[in-house]
């Protein structure tokens, strides 16, 4: 719970429709999700089930077609593009499957990027970016560019970039999708530690039940809807 007792993320009867008229395609058909401060939630489901759309909504990159999304009690649907950008800047961190680091830019500069937009002074930026890199075990790799780092290291730089602003919520979209199992374990260990030690709320999309097992609970998507836990229990999981 946030200090005033509200959940961090609260989606109520949220739908999302792409296109118009006959070409309209409903990606989300009315979902209710509540995530409390400090949770580690895994999101699973086949492709096209609506989980990516849901992540974009929670990440304030998109707005619902109908229904209500409250982030820390603020209605995101009513915010302008720039207001949502400011929300992302101050409260959200993103980790992607494809790392999405800036090429030919050192690890340190990549991690500093969000701080530049916050207007932090250079000295403070360096300091915090170094700390964040140390946090993911990359102390001493500050001057390496993504091209000089392994996949696992690149993803760790991406995590450092996501947590350098001390966000309330970390959104990870298949963070281990491009990594072998040993590297995947490393990433999950880091995420779990951030969740436990720093209290960062994490929502992670994954295809692998092994990875979902690190999370506190799992939300399953199918055909644009959330599958209720009771129904899954009845079907015997899977």
């Amino acid at each position: 719970m946030t200090p005033d007792g509200r959940p961090l993320v609260e989606l109520r009867r949220v739908t999302k429709t792409y296109g118009r008229g006959a070409a309209a395609m409903q990606a989300l058909g009315g979902i209710d999700i509540v995530i409390a401060q400090g949770e580690f939630v895994a999101v699973m489901g086949p492709s096209g089930s609506g989980k990516s759309t849901c992540m974009n909504l929670i990440g304030c990159l998109d707005t619902p077609s109908s229904g209500s999304y409250l982030f820390q009690g603020v209605e995101v649907g009513g915010l302008t593009r720039d207001q949502r950008a400011l929300l992302r800047r101050h409260y959200l961190g993103f980790v992607f499957q494809g790392f999405n680091l800036l090429n030919r830019t050192s690890a340190l500069e990549n991690v500093e990027l969000p701080l530049i937009y916050r207007g932090d002074p250079a000295e403070q930026r360096h300091q915090r970016a170094r700390e964040a890199l140390a946090e993911v075990g990359l102390a001493g790799w500050e001057d390496h560019t993504p091209g000089e780092l392994s996949g696992g290291q690149q993803q760790r730089v991406a995590i450092a970039r996501a947590i350098v602003t001390r966000p309330a919520l970390l959104l990870a979209d298949e963070p281990t999708g491009n990594l072998d199992s040993a590297r995947s374990q490393e990433i999950m260990t880091i995420l779990t530690r951030l969740n436990r030690e720093q209290g960062i709320t994490i929502v992670m999309v994954t295809h692998e039940p092994d990875m979902a097992a690190y999370a506190g609970r799992t939300i399953h998507f199918r055909d644009g809807l959330v599958v209720p836990a009771a129904e899954r229990a009845h079907q015997g999981g899977g």
């Binding site: 720039d82 950008a85 800047r89 999405n100 990027l113 937009y117």
Partner: peptide
């Protein structure tokens, strides 16, 4: 385009 996407996702404003 991807770089711009990253910048926008981490909170860069349109005018920035």
């Amino acid at each position: 385009t991807r770089e711009i996407g990253i910048r926008l996702a981490i909170g860069a404003l349109e005018r920035e």
